[in-house]
């Protein structure tokens, strides 16, 4: 019989380390991917995902199943990701402010873009454009899209993670998808054959 996440966590609370290993195995992949889509850096995403598990383990004694386990897990992940994004933005701002000003600086030479001929390269380019468009969304909209589209969470759960009402979430999602529809219009107009079985059924 498969134990629920809540039961696994209660077992972790009781000192069962094997249950913690099961939760780790189950949520390692979705967490790393969610965090990667948030921070767009593999090493940072892994580091943050490890931090999420560390915090779950640290809080095991105080755990009470008041909400779904995934709500708690992704709430920790969201907070860590947003802090990381803000810290990174702050660091980049400091670097750009501290950078020496060169008066005689010549404009950056951008090499002429070579048209991808390989289909794999086309796919990679498209994925890059999509990631960039998602990353450009406002923080809350980005989290909402990632949890809705890729984690397939229900509205109630996402609303709890984002600390907003379900009605506000629906409006947030509409605005986010509307922005993506406009930003990714060329890709929407020219779809490529995608791998079946990925993401939410449309």
């Amino acid at each position: 019989m498969t134990r629920s996440d809540v039961q696994l966590m209660l077992d972790v609370k009781a000192g069962d380390d094997v249950s913690f290993g099961l939760l780790l195995a189950k949520y390692r992949l979705p967490l790393v991917n969610f965090l990667f889509r948030m921070v767009r850096d593999t090493a940072t995403a892994e580091d943050l995902a490890q931090e999420v598990f560390l915090r779950v383990y640290r809080a095991r004694k105080q755990y009470s199943p008041s909400a779904k386990f995934t709500t708690w897990l992704f709430r920790i992940a969201t907070n860590l990701a947003l802090n990381s994004v803000r810290d990174n933005r702050h660091r980049q701002m400091e670097v750009s402010l501290d950078a020496p000003v060169e008066e005689d600086e010549s404009p950056v030479q951008v090499p002429a873009r070579v048209m991808p001929i390989d289909e794999h390269m086309v796919e990679r380019d498209r994925a890059q454009i999509i990631r960039r468009a998602i990353a450009a969304l406002p923080e809350k909209q980005r989290v909402a899209v990632l949890l809705h589209k890729y984690e397939e969470m229900d509205y109630g759960e996402i609303a709890k993670i984002l600390d907003c009402s379900e009605s506000a979430l629906k409006s947030l999602l509409f605005r986010a998808y509307e922005t993506l529809r406009v930003q990714l219009a060329p890709l929407v107009a020219q779809p490529v054959a995608h791998r079946a079985g990925e993401g939410r059924p449309s």
């Binding site: 780790l24 790393v32 892994e46 995902a49 490890q50 999509i130 589209k149 890709l187 779809p191 993401g199």
Partner: peptide, 24 residues
């Protein structure tokens, strides 16, 4: 919107490193 969701599926998943669990 339906087409957009299909496009969003094009983003591939990344695999956590083999040492992930050990690191945790």
């Amino acid at each position: 919107f339906r087409k957009l969701w299909t496009v969003l599926d094009e983003v591939p998943m990344i695999e956590p490193s083999a040492a992930f669990d050990a690191r945790v």
